[in-house]
Simulated assay, not measured.
Amino acid sequence: MTARKKFGDPALFGEEWADDYDEKTTLDPAPAVEFLADLAGRGRALELAVGTGRVALPLAARGVRVEGVEGSDRMVRRLREKPGGTAIPVVVGDMADVPAEGPFALVYLVFNTLFNLIDADRQADCFRNVARVLDEDGAFVVETYVPDPSFFDRGQRVETLAVTEDSATIEVYRFDLAAQRFHSQKITFDADGVHLRPHAERYCWPSELDLMAARAGLRLDRRFADWSGRPFGADSTGHVSVYRPAR
């Protein structure tokens, strides 16, 4: 029996979620692709945590030379099964290390994936290593949610996700408020037994990401509430931030 991945393992998310990731992810990638294609121009682009290619494939179809880094072999296999998937070079490894040869005109991390790095030091490593492979005029784009303190009130949370005639799915969270980290399990009870899907994140506020960027030699160039370019404000629940070399 293969040992189960542990929290903090770069492959954990992909190994647990790859089989039905595309079916469970309903977000339209088109706005992100439009935004990223404009930034990449004719240069090379690198997607960290490229996954099944939800963004990379349509971006490549726009003529952008996309490469990827992915922690999970299973995710990469799903990418390779799709039309055009074999044409995207992918390195299997820890995205915090950015194991790719630059320079890149664009490096990007979408859909909260930066938070899958559950240690502050590794998040900082990611910024520093992105700066290492970024073109002097390049852009590093990060999309994440803005943490909502009410979500992790009292350090734990239980949600009912689905109830049918023969199954029930809940999600349970345990928060470490000092570390800004949570561990969760999505648990399904059905006739076949109990099914577990673990997940962990270290969440950050935008100002903390700006500090990591500054320490890596990057500066915030622009920040929007979403891919459409809506202004970011105090009531924004998410952000798309564009960082560039400070030099």
Rank of each mutant, 00 (worst) to 15 (best):
G8L: 05
D235G: 08
L27H: 15
A45R: 13
D176W: 06
V163H: 11
E81G: 12
C126F: 01
I118V: 12
V194R: 11
S184K: 11
A56H: 03
L114D: 04
V91K: 00
L106Q: 04
T2N: 09
D166K: 08
G43F: 02
R54L: 05
R219D: 13
T169K: 01
S167P: 14
A120P: 11
I88K: 13
A87P: 08
T86E: 15
E159K: 00
E81I: 02
F140I: 01
V66Y: 01
V240Q: 04
T113R: 15
F232E: 05
D226N: 09
V130W: 05
R244E: 14
K24S: 11
R132E: 13
R78F: 05
R157K: 11
A11T: 10
D9R: 10
N129A: 12
E201N: 13
T26W: 12
W17I: 06
P206W: 01
A200V: 05
A61P: 15
F175C: 07
P89M: 07
V146Q: 02
K186S: 02
A45P: 10
E171F: 03
G217S: 00
A216Y: 03
S207E: 14
S207C: 03
A225W: 02
L39H: 05
E47M: 15
V142Y: 03
Y243Q: 07
R181K: 13
D176T: 06
V142Q: 05
A124E: 13
P149W: 00
A37Y: 08
T2Y: 04
R202K: 09
A213T: 15
D73I: 02
V92H: 14
D135M: 08
D221Y: 09
L59G: 05
V172S: 12
Y243E: 07
F115C: 09
T113G: 12
R78S: 04
N116F: 09
A246T: 07
E159F: 00
R122W: 00
L220P: 02
V33S: 04
L161T: 14
A213Y: 02
P147H: 03
Y173W: 14
L218T: 06
V64M: 00
D125K: 13
M1F: 06
E165Y: 09
R247S: 15
T52M: 00
T2Q: 09
L161Q: 11
F127A: 11
S72G: 06
F111L: 12
M212E: 07
N129S: 14
K82R: 07
L39D: 04
L46A: 13
Q156D: 09
G102Q: 15
E101Q: 13
Y173D: 04
A32D: 05
